[in-house]
Design a protein around this nucleic acid. Structure first.
Length: 421
RNA sequence: GGAUGGGUGUCGGAGUGGUCUAACGAGACAGUCUUGAAAACUGUUGUACCAGCAAUGGUACCGUGAGUUCGAAUCUCACCCCAUCCGCCA
């Protein structure tokens, strides 16, 4: 959600933003609706003022005749007021609907593009792993080592179902523990949030109304969130913070549920794309200025880069192009890990900032040093998702004998150096 | 699944359809008094939108939305939310 005043004064920017994000949105339609809204508001407020003024007269009328006369006058005003309010009601529906579709404006540094193929590489780290043998993919390795059962996963859950077993489970716990130490050591408060959430939180974060199809829903009308970002953003909804409390840094840990409704042909094999997984997520609320947003955005992304580096997995970082940005995102970095068997970098992390797009919808404010109420800025980034991280971890660290070398930093958490011996 | 009670300002808490510009109390802030503090006393104390360069003016907000009325915190209806009890489960 953007400020209507800002939209009116910068409608060209909005039009360019929509085009860059490949979102079909006509800002002129919103301006037209807003013109009607303003007119109806001014007009009905004037009539109401008249009515308010007459009220005292009616209450203190000296004679019944005087009173009857005043009431008769106000009956006329009432009819006019009802007409204005009818207009206002109709246009407000339209207006609110349009306001929910206004895209946030991408940063200058976001490249143009039509799809994730146009994302701009800004960093590569590590050597793409070379093998003196024919590397296998993670499904083959894990199945052979009793770490993964896709067949029975499918039997029980259906398409994209999986069982992790044995050392795969231990590896997940090791990664979670390590991540908790790593990110916790950088000032993030660990949080296990509710992931079955009320609808309002999804509107607030910008996942609704557009993302309805990708979400699981309960019979009570609640939703299973696809990321801990949703409940963490809801945490301070409708609250006013003090500037001294900012920035707030959270490390959420939660299961994540995604229907992957629009991705039926994509990544049909293995652990890349699944309906339920676990994720540690960084969320920050900070002061309302662009520099702070940029600073924390870089910080959040660097945290995950350094985490991946400590595991010694080759990766690259991209700036997502316009078409790959969500409605509310100003800028987004993806970190992609090298997957040897596919010979491709695959997304593992996504860090974005929103300015006050989310906090306006959620009504998260703070008082700045002058005492002025302001909407905070929000940003978030993946810390680490499981089991997706296992794909590149296992494929990059596989050995000729079919075993897996555990990254040294994880040995302390995992308990042994090699899986499969 | 069944039953009941309740949503008022920063908080507690009143509120017979018109003077609600929401009583009263607490808190916070400022001042008086004081060597300083406490106490006491006095005053101030929300948010959003519209018009305006501004000073300022207007409107709305008592959970949300409709309705009745010249006029609604107050009456009617629907919904949302909160709490408690019983049952069931962990």
């Amino acid at each position: 959600m953007l400020d209507i005043k800002f939209i009116r004064e910068n409608k060209d920017l909005i039009a360019i933003a929509a085009k860059k994000k490949h979102i079909d949105f006509d800002v002129e339609k919103l301006i037209a609706a807003d013109d009607i809204r303003r007119k109806a508001m001014t007009s009905s407020e004037k009539l109401r003022a008249e009515q308010n003024a007459a009220n005292d007269g009616i209450a203190s009328a000296k004679t019944p005749e005087e009173r009857t006369k005043l009431i008769a006058d106000m009956k006329v005003v009432k009819v006019a007021l009802e007409k204005d309010e009818e207009t206002l009601k109709t246009v407000m529906k339209d207006w609110q609907n349009l306001m929910l579709q206004v895209p946030n404006i991408p940063d200058m540094s976001v490249p143009d593009g039509n799809s994730d193929a146009d994302n701009m590489e800004i960093k590569t780290w590590g050597e793409k792993t070379k093998f003196a043998f024919d590397p296998k993919d993670h499904v083959e390795i894990m199945t052979a080592l009793g770490m993964l059962d896709l067949e029975r996963g499918q039997k029980v859950h259906g398409f994209r179902g999986y069982y992790l077993t044995g050392d795969a489970v231990k590896l997940c716990f090791a990664i979670w523990s390590y991540a908790l130490d790593f990110f916790g050591g950088r000032g993030f408060l660990p949080v296990i949030p509710p992931i079955v959430v009320r609808k309002i939180n999804l509107f607030g974060t910008g996942y609704l109304p557009q993302g309805e199809e990708d979400m699981y829903k309960t019979q009570d009308g609640d939703y299973l969130a696809g990321t801990a970002e949703v409940p963490l953003m809801g945490l301070y909804a409708d609250e006013t913070l003090t500037v001294a409390e900012l920035p707030k840094k959270f490390l959420g840990f939660s299961p994540c549920y995604r229907r992957e409704a629009g991705a039926h042909g994509k990544d049909v094999r293995g652990l890349i794309r699944v309906n339920e997984f676990y994720k540690l997520e960084q969320v920050i609320l900070c002061e309302a200025n662009h520099e702070a947003s940029v600073k924390f955005h870089d910080e959040v992304n660097a945290n995950t880069e350094q985490f991946i580096e400590s595991l010694n997995i080759p990766y690259r970082t991209v700036i997502n192009c316009g078409a790959d940005l969500g409605l509310g995102q100003v800028k987004k970095y993806d970190i992609e890990l090298w997957v040897p068997k596919e010979e491709k970098y695959r997304e593992i992390s996504s860090a974005s900032y929103f300015h006050d797009f989310q906090t306006r919808r959620l009504n998260i404010r703070y008082r700045d040093v002058e005492g002025t109420l302001r909407y905070a800025h929000s940003l978030n980034g993946t810390a680490i998702p499981t089991p997706r991280i296992l794909v590149s971890l296992i494929e990059n660290f596989q050995q000729p004998d079919g075993t897996i070398k555990v990254p040294p930093i994880l040995v302390k958490y995992f308990g042994k150096e090699v899986i499969g011996k």
